[in-house]
Amino acid sequence: MSDAAASTASRPEDPGILSVRDLDAGYDELQVLSGVDLDVARGEYVTIVGPNGAGKSTVMKSVFGLTTYFDGSVTFDDRSIAQQQPEEIIHHGISYVPQTGNVFPSLSVRENLEMGAFILEDVPEQQIETIFDRFPILRERQSQAAGTLSGGQRQMLAMGRALMLDPELLLLDEPSAGLAPDLVDELFDRIDAINEDGTAVMLVEQNATEALRRCDRGYVLVQGENRFMDDGETLLADTTVRKEFLGG
């Protein structure tokens, strides 16, 4: 995998499905991002790393219409989505998994998945089966309330819900947060598998070393601006990046 990543040019030739240009965004009056540029190619695996408060999650939320837009452009599949609401954006093929509160605790596992496909007229049984094949534990627990799942299982359910519409791009906000270390590896394997099946992944991670090792390309975000962009292995090897953002 790392070989494939290393061969990718520092900026993809294909402008990609997602393209963020010169984006200024934030929350209400507060501007968090200034002039962020970011691309995701079809089927690509992109990671955003950076210190706390750098605006990593804000970039992701901005793509999904959850922040206040100030300036710049966000295009997905040649369509401007910069000022659209999540309800509209989900129709274009982007799904988002928030960092916390990413399942409906009183709903059953199956109902959680069904809610992921709310915008479809009928419940896509086929897709539920596909997700159960991907995460067999969810099939076992399908009638159980999501609130009774363990942290790792919840994270799978959260991804399963987001995959219900078979999106082109999956946005994952710190999926490893709060997971036991031995589960983190398993989680990254699962994200790899989702990506290998053709879904582009945009990942925000505090577990930067592991995320950069796995992804195609990485962005280092500092104080709301992107500072470095390269393939994951190169970023990992970069002394400045290592020293300042990856803890040596």
Binding site: F64, L66, P86, E87, I90, H91, Y96, P98, G101, N102, V103, F104, P105, S106, L107, M115, G116, F118, I119, R161, L165
Partner: peptide, 10 residues
């Protein structure tokens, strides 16, 4: 359960 998750689920 969770209004903001309901929103992002469409």
């Amino acid at each position: 359960d969770n209004e903001s998750l309901a929103r992002v689920s469409g």
